[in-house]
Design a protein around this nucleic acid. Structure first.
Lengths: 227, 227
DNA sequence: ATAGTTTAGTGTATTTAATACACAAACTAT
DNA sequence: ATAGTTTGTGTATTAAATACACTAAACTAT
């Protein structure tokens, strides 16, 4: 965003990449999409999907492109937030790269068509059982999970992980998975309904051999911070 | 932090800069250091001090260098936190720059020797009365002030703005300036002392024609988040 | 149809935290 | 000694968070 002294156009400078951390809930776990690297450094290791930022695209464009090219997910359909920018000198390669990390929340069914020709190998991993990772990606994921864990407490971003219509018990379960804690049903419902962010869809969920549940949706999908 | 397909070493890519937002309290106002630009684009406008990131330095190194070169402030003496990374395509210049913004909290007396040969013009501005600014710097400052305002509520970062020893009324005043609100003295003191982050220095401040105040210091300068 | 199983849905009492509020104490300047 | 100024302190009220247990509604197996 600025132009300054001390740098003429052809001095060498760092390259910029964007990595995306795509979170979803699946199998009652918080999971993240990783790709297997095809070349050195860290050939064969799992890593966050990422792309180099081109001259003619914004960081957000690049994040969107990474998402689309790697998973087929459209950016309008998910929650996307800039996490942090990493620019340490790398010990493992001569290349000098500044990486802007974005994290994405998507519900699992939007994510399922993960097949794309441009990608070699792609998998969902529980954030609690990660394989050995390339670069500093383990640390990046930890940072993202921490952010998610704290932000879910004072915002409505959980909606990124839920389907359009959901039961309050689905929502509670999502909180419990992310916070890694059991929550009290009555207090949870009182709190969530008290925020006035949800409205009943007017349908019941008739699945399972038990009393059917009301379905709810978020009144607005705009990100809201409370407290 | 990563190396990937689709980019060979000599494809053109964006440059990276670091801008620093140096905040201090002076004259009972929250102020920020700006420099006057000497060349286009935005020649003559006020802007955040910044530097290009070199191949052989980390982002933090670059932020530290920007601080030192522009203000003589050493990084160990201040609170420094990454704010956000801006990478929109610029409307005002052909250059393509990704800017990582850091914000710094310093107490005013550490900041006073602002003279440095490498800098043309440097000034402190109240964040409420900013001049016309270059690039998107007005928006960046707003974002930083928002962050400061919210973070001061759940962390001890206010210590960056205070001297080593201070009166509780100094601390309260700092909160009031940043939050732009009057606070209740008894409740403020109860809260702050209840956090157990402060200890009395054991000296009194004998200034002014009134009862002298106890001086306090932070037990630890490590950043602490509460709530 | 009845009993058994499972999840949905609901209210109150208790504890903790946030707020509102006023006066005496200690110093200086005159 | 008096006036002026800032420091330092406690309690009552309100709001928010927590702890906790039973009935309702569906399905299944008999």
């Amino acid at each position: 965003m600025r132009k300054n002294n001390t740098n003429s156009a052809n001095v060498e400078h760092p390259e910029v990449t964007v990595d995306v951390l795509i979170f979803t809930i699946s199998d009652n776990k918080l999971k993240i999409i990783l790709t297997k690297r095809g070349k050195d450094p860290f050939k064969g290791y799992w890593a966050l999907p990422g792309v180099f930022v081109n001259m003619n695209e914004s960081l957000l464009d690049a994040a969107s492109r990474a998402l689309k090219e790697k998973t087929g997910v459209e950016i309008e359909k998910v929650y996307l937030e800039q996490l942090y920018t990493f620019g340490e000198l790398s010990k493992n390669s001569k290349s000098r790269v500044v990486t802007v990390a974005y994290f994405v929340l998507s519900n699992n069914y939007k994510l399922t068509p993960i097949k794309s020709p441009s990608v070699r190998e792609l998998n969902l991993f529980s954030v609690n059982r990660l394989p050995e990772l390339a670069f500093n990606h383990k640390m990046i994921i930890k940072k993202a999970v921490d952010r998610l864990r704290s932000k879910i407490e004072y915002s409505n971003i959980v909606l990124g992980l839920l389907p359009e219509k959901f039961r309050l018990s689905d929502m509670q379960k999502t909180y419990e998975i992310i916070l890694n804690a059991k929550l009290d049903k009555r207090n949870f419902r009182k709190k969530m309904l008290g925020l006035k962010l949800l409205q009943p869809v007017g349908e019941k969920d008739l699945q399972g051999a038990h009393r059917p549940a009301m379905l709810y949706r978020f009144i607005s999908k705009k990100t809201i911070l409370f407290d």
